[in-house]
Design a protein around this nucleic acid. Structure first.
Lengths: 202, 202, 202, 202
DNA sequence: CGGTAACCGAGACGGTACGTCGGGTCTTTCG
DNA sequence: CGAAAGACCCGACGTACCGTCTCGGTTACCG
């Protein structure tokens, strides 16, 4: 993998090695051949000793999740179309399109599986999920401030519906995940919000 | 595990062995100590030779998922309150209550993790999920026939909104899964359905 | 402990694997390229899983020593020339010639090194050494019975003088180990025995 | 190990560090817990960087053997009792007593093991052994000059019998190594010498 | 007297081998 | 002839050391 020699950095952590490990991790996670990413192959492909991985990460799951967070966390821009439905549709489309990619989906599936076994990975997963949720929650709060969502609405549950559908489809693979689904779900959620507003009004 | 001696049955398949294997599988899946259920421990605990497992199941994942399906698949009665919201609330409450139990949740988490690695398990998971979805889909279709849901509504997506939230919370564990969530989600979905009806009417 | 005769079910030890392991061990020990015989290479060369080695031997040293004992223990015939000096010369010549071979010497050196670290190997070495000593002790006892060695002579020390010289030269390599040395040492020891006889007589 | 701070010596070799390394090496070699003295533990215990060891010694074995030579090489005084047997008995008693000490024996065993693997150590061992042999050879030559040993006698083989017995017992541990053995062996060797003298005379 | 060369403690690095664990197959013996 | 027992091959696991490297610092020598 790393043909060109990576220089030692003495007694300080070698940033180049860290990068190589994470890059290779994303690469391997992306393969959906079912091969479950071994530490040996990871180390070999990164041109790194296994100890260098274990020195900095407590477990395989931790590496994979950090790698995943880097990849999947590639910022989804927060749109501002002026309406809840427009914002949702744009955000969901970008999000679903990302997660729908074969490679990213594979990363997500492997990571979630790892998180079920490894407590470290679990914690990383929790943090990753939280960071993603925060973005969407912000979008919804803005809409609420604009008066498009009732004050008492359960924003968390709305967020869960989005990411729930996303993970569910990624993990089980029973249905597609693309622009059409994003649009449909955006409409459903804005309908939910509108209905509650009407309640409050009436 | 099997204190009393299970008799050999000679040349015919030993149903008792099959039962013991599935029972032990559920038991081990239920432990959420993170220990990942090995075939050896499964065979030992069931008082069964490993070959007896492999004779009847193609892989570890297949056993575990079949075990899970037995447990988690305990039939949720399909309610009939006369209204979509009532039906949903009853169904979701029962479903969430089941999945929210520590043991069942543990089984689900382990099974989903297994399904990400093992193709056999993946297929089983797909089938299990499909069977569960069919029930809820039936409930929604009935409501559509009653005129509570628009003809063009994406029922599959509504089903996903339910099971997506369920799996998402089970797997990540960032929020509770109980009657309150069931009620809130039932209300949201029926609102969403009603909104589409209004569109169609106008 | 409490178990009486259990008839043993299940697959039996694979004798071919055992032989392959020991043969390969001798082969690898024999290389005096300094490469220290790893379990991995041993298993690979024998076409055997590592576990199969660890199932039957407690440590690497134990395998190597058993292999060595088989090789070096190839029976040295006990000569019967009628005189102590003749017997000694024949026995020592055969023994030294064996140990002097490059391959056997290499096996001996590696084994002794292993025995210094590994308690299991140490015990095996003790047993091997003891079995070799017994043969020579028997030869000396016969000579004592014939009256060629004084009753009070320290036979154990005489045996040590033989094997001491042998191991010393094998391990340090400061001098040859062949027929000439055998003859010289045989003469020295029979002289030494004769001297004690004279003492007793005088 | 080194509680008090060792002062830097700038660009000149730090003698204190060298001493600390050798002292710790002897200390660790002396443990007969079978733990095989690693460079890391050696460096840590000496409060020294690993590079400081590799700067001055070509390999682990070299350090250990130099340490051993220092300890075991503590000069055995060459006695002068006037007779071969007396000289031998005194010299052997002192030598055996030294090597018989648990700590020294442990050092010797570990060093010899190291010498079988490491070429540097092997060479050091050869040199050490040679220096020890020279002393005993000198003692024998003096006796030959006095006419107590025949001119044609194989002094080297006599020396080998002494050190052979010593190493053999140290390495295998099948018998004690003390004054009694020293006396018995001294008598045996002087008997050998006397016998050859008689031959020459007759 | 200000570089600079060689030493030092520290510790990360790429590797190799370790001994263990688990997966899935194969073989033996019993009922 | 199915089922238990369990040995087999394979390969990943996480750890221990190896010998190399770079760092930041100290001290002695040299210009």
């Amino acid at each position: 993998m790393s043909d060109s020699r990576r220089p030692h950095t003495g007694r300080r952590r070698n940033e180049a090695a860290r990068r190589a490990i994470l890059d290779v991790a994303v690469d391997l996670l992306g393969r959906d051949d079912g091969a479950p990413v071994t530490i040996d192959s990871l180390a070999a492909a990164a041109g790194v000793g296994k100890q260098t991985i274990y020195r900095w990460w407590p477990s395989k799951g931790a590496v994979l999740l950090e790698a995943m967070a880097e990849r999947a966390g590639t910022d989804i821009p927060v749109p501002d179309t002026g309406t809840l439905r427009g914002d949702l549709e744009a955000f969901l489309a970008a999000t679903f399109r990302g997660a729908g990619q074969r490679l990213t989906a594979s990363v997500l599936r492997n990571s979630m599986a790892e998180a079920q076994r490894d407590p470290h990975a679990r914690e990383h997963m929790r943090a990753f999920v939280e960071s993603r949720r925060r973005v969407l929650t912000g979008l919804l709060e803005r809409a609420r401030d604009r008066g498009e969502i009732a004050a008492g609405a359960d924003l968390a549950l709305m967020v869960d519906q989005v990411y729930g559908v996303l993970w569910y489809r990624v993990l089980v693979g029973h249905g597609p995940l693309g622009d059409a689904q994003a649009a449909e779900l955006a409409r459903a959620l804005s309908d939910q919000a509108a209905a509650r507003l009407g309640d409050a009004a009436g």
